[in-house]
Write a protein that binds this DNA or RNA. Structure first.
Lengths: 115, 115
DNA sequence: AAACTCTGTCAGTCATGACTTACCGTAAGT
DNA sequence: ACTTACGGTAAGTCATGACTGACAGAGTTT
């Protein structure tokens, strides 16, 4: 997740959406030096988001579906939890305003509930 | 995406998976000071990943499904592209080794194809 | 109203990491 | 063999941002 934090790294990923590319071509798509690109590619590869294939002096980088799938799964679960939690909070809200026939929450009586 | 880069921020998100929580409770789940938590919560809220509900002096933070959905969509598209690209590369590989009946790639003849 | 709790913000420090230049190894072309 | 292209690594600089303590404002309780 930290690997996708840097905008330059995201730009490199974007550059690889259409297919594998060698470092020299990739470096031309971002406004930083080639060594910087190498360092970013290393971070992305270590994170499992890219894979490399050596062809002569060139190294073709491409997106690793498995690595992306991992992040996807994380966000999927997070999203599920957020939705169920949202639904539960909403139903509780409805039940409460139902029972007490709409007195403004105002304080919500959860102060000083130190355990 | 940068919002989820920091491990402390991810820990805060994790703490909210089970439901909304005030800052003081949230701060107890991470090994940093309360002001630091406030700052992280601001970043996450600005990123659209959290929403706040004021209840008296307390501010209940909860995960915003919409914000998570946005990241999810980004990774979904990235994953799709990676898969199709992977499939295309694989089929090209197969076609090439089919046609030339398995001579080792060794160089791949894509050097000096400067446009 | 006074004391207390909850929380955001400010100023300042410090560590992380993004970037550059220089260099070296490797493979391919002449 | 010599040259050139490709690309990783090292050392060093610098900016970003994560963190802390101090403070202020708003709401609650007594």
């Amino acid at each position: 997740m930290t690997a996708l934090a840097d905008p330059t790294r995201r730009a490199l990923i974007e550059g690889l959406r259409n297919g594998p590319l060698p470092v020299c071509d990739l470096a031309r798509t971002v406004p930083v030096s080639r060594p910087a690109v190498s360092q970013h590619l290393r971070v992305l590869t270590d994170a499992g988001l890219l894979v490399v294939a050596q062809h002569g002096t060139r190294r073709l980088y491409s997106i690793a579906p498995d690595g992306v799938a991992e992040l996807r799964a994380y966000l999927d679960h997070l999203w599920d939890d957020a939705l169920t939690c949202f639904a539960r909070t909403a139903s509780q809200e409805a039940a409460r305003t139902d029972a007490k026939s709409a007195p403004p929450p105002k304080g919500l009586r959860l102060n000083n509930v130190r355990h």
